[in-house]
Structures are given as C-alpha cells and as structure tokens.
Simulated assay, not measured.
Amino acid sequence: MDFRLTDDQRALRAGVRELLEGRFPRERLRAVVDAGAPVVDRALWRELGGAGFFALRLAEADGGVGLGLPEAVLVFEEAGRALLPGPLVATHLAAGVVEGAAGGRAVVTALDAAGPLVEHLASADAVLVIGDEGDEGDDEGDGAGGGIGVLSAAGLARSARPIRSVDPATPLHRLDLGSRPGQEERGLAAFPADPRSTARLRREAALLTAALQLGSAARTVEMAVRHAGERSQFGRAIGAFQAVQHLCAGMLVRVETARSVVYAAAVTEDAGEVTAAKLLADEAAVRNARDCLQVHGGMGFTWEADVHLHLKRAWVRAGQWQTAAEAEEELAAGLLRIGV
C-alpha cells in the first residue's frame, strides 16, 4: 500500500494553506481571541464552503468535490496549523445531510454522548447529536438516546449552561444528556442508517480532530525553530545551544511519527489505527506546544505571543471525541484480543 502523497494531494494542501494564510492571517486570529466572546465568522465560513472545505467528501453528483478521507485529513491539517476556530469537524460530517452545511451557509456543531460539552453552540444553526453505540434504535429518531440525529441549536441552547473554556477562541456549553428535546427541537434532519453508523462517524470525527492536532503540532515546530534562530543570548542564537536543539528535534520526531500514523489511518480507516492516530496526535500537539513555550522562555507565556493559543486549543481537542485514557483502553483491548 502506497502512503505517499500524489501531486494532486500536494496541490490541494498548498491551495488550502494559501487560502487560509490570505483569509485567516495571524491578525484575524488575534482579533478572535481578543474579542472575548468569539463567534463563527459567517463570511469566512461561506468562503470555506465555496472552496469545498465541507463538501470535500460528497459525491460530485451531490454537489461535492468527490474526494476521500485522505484528502480531508490534509485539509484539516492545514486548518489546525492556522488555528482556524469553529466546529469544522461537525459541519464537515453533516455536509449533505444538514441543509446549507456543504456550502458553508449553515454552522453545525456536535454533541457526543461520551462527553456533554458542545463548542460554538451560540454560533451554530444545528447540533449533530451522536448517542451511545448499540442504541441506534432510538424510537424518537433524534439521537438523544442513541444513534445519530440533528437538532436545533437554538432549542438546545435554552437548556445549555456556558462554562469557562481554557481556549479563548473555543466557547463551550454543557448540555444535560438526560433531558429529552421538545417537539420544536427535533427532526431537522436524519442521517441514513447505512453506511454512517455511530461507530464510523465517531472514527471519522476522531481522525479529523487528530489531523487538526497534527497541523498545530507542526506549526509549533516552525515557531520554535524560527524563534531559536532569531533570539540571541550570550552573544549567539539560542538555537546554537544543544539543549534547545534537543527540544526542537524531539518536537519534529513527534510530528513525523504522528503524521505517519494519521495519514495511514486515513487510507485504511481501521478503527485501531484511527485510535492510535488520535492518541499520538494529541500527544504531539500538547507536548510540542509545551516545548515551544520552553524555547520561547518567558515571552511564550505572555498574552501577546501565539504559543499559548496552540497549547490551549490542543488541550480542548485532546478532550474531544476520544481522550487519551479511552484510546489507551481501546488499544489495550485490541492487543488482548490478538493475544487470545
């Protein structure tokens, strides 16, 4: 099996990077962070939709781009590199099911039964609700008790409680999973029973989140290396000191290790490989951001620096879809099955 990128895939990645550098530069990121109450930029969301960001995996006959999960991973990696805010994964997964999601006219967030936190609820039009696996026969058809459904964001917001988020660009709300939605809140859309099972949707969400983490981890390597070459101490660049070199080298190893597993999981779509990809990408994003802070010294901890934003976003994503503890348990169970 060949995991090397094709010329078309490289061109796609370069095109997305160019788009994001032009439409979401550092100044836009800082404006979102400094706003205090971040909301999804609808104009940018529609532009992403027009570029095929959300419809990337829809068939051309359905108005999509007709590409696959490997291409989606490349696109989400670039979004993670730019720290692009918003419920990107949920809107991408809902394309073709929620009206307007594919073109960026609708913002869709997600509620996973495994964790009751919802990001960007105030900016969303709809909420993709994923219930417990094995409970897909939910007689309500709303996903609140099992299976997959789409509910009104405005309806759910009435029973949601805002909580403080460590990431200033990712507002969070906590929802009561035990409450049943009112009649006006259910039935916005229905996912087809086949082939999108609950388990498959969770795997795709975990892998795309891993791609976001991978992009952030790679970006912090670039930031650390650049600062090490520019910052001087004792008459020479700090990058000349072996301790700093070791930090940067370790960061690069984490990124390349995670990248190989994330890319492979996108090709195979194997559940175990997706779990390993999420685990390694989370570790790379969090630990690289911490090491990048060390390279920057006291400057890295200041509000004006961007390093802490990568660390805070990495912490939030590490708790989404599959935590490290859940991934480790799943991988251990897989090894035990092989041993038997």
Rank of each mutant, 00 (worst) to 15 (best):
M1Y: 10
L5E: 15
T6D: 08
Q9M: 10
R10G: 15
A11L: 12
L12F: 01
R13F: 00
A14G: 13
G15S: 13
R17I: 06
R26T: 14
D34G: 07
G36F: 10
G36Q: 11
P38Y: 01
V39S: 14
A43G: 06
L44W: 13
L48S: 05
G49I: 08
G50C: 08
A51D: 05
A55I: 05
L56R: 07
A59M: 10
E60H: 04
V65H: 01
V65Y: 02
G66N: 07
L67M: 09
V75P: 04
A82E: 00
L83Q: 05
P85A: 14
P87Y: 00
L88T: 10
L93A: 12
G96C: 04
G100I: 00
A102I: 04
G103F: 11
R105D: 15
A106G: 15
A106D: 13
V107Q: 09
V108W: 10
V108L: 06
I130T: 11
D132V: 12
G134K: 08
G134F: 14
D135H: 13
E136N: 04
D142N: 11
I148S: 09
L156D: 02
L156G: 02
R161A: 07
R161I: 05
D167I: 02
D167Y: 08
H173L: 05
R174Q: 14
P181Y: 02
G187Y: 00
G187N: 04
L188P: 13
F191R: 01
R196F: 09
R203H: 06
A210K: 03
S216C: 03
H227R: 08
G229M: 06
R231G: 00
Q233P: 01
R236M: 05
I238C: 01
G239C: 11
A243V: 13
H246Y: 10
C248A: 14
C248T: 12
A249K: 15
V253M: 14
R254E: 04
V255W: 13
E256R: 15
V262G: 03
Y263C: 05
A265Y: 01
V267A: 13
V267C: 10
E269W: 01
D270M: 08
A271P: 12
A276G: 06
L280F: 10
D282N: 07
R290T: 08
R290L: 13
C292T: 04
Q294G: 07
Q294T: 15
E304I: 10
D306S: 11
A314W: 05
Q320A: 09
A327D: 01
E329I: 04
E330L: 11
A332L: 09
G334S: 13
L336I: 12
R337D: 15
R337S: 15
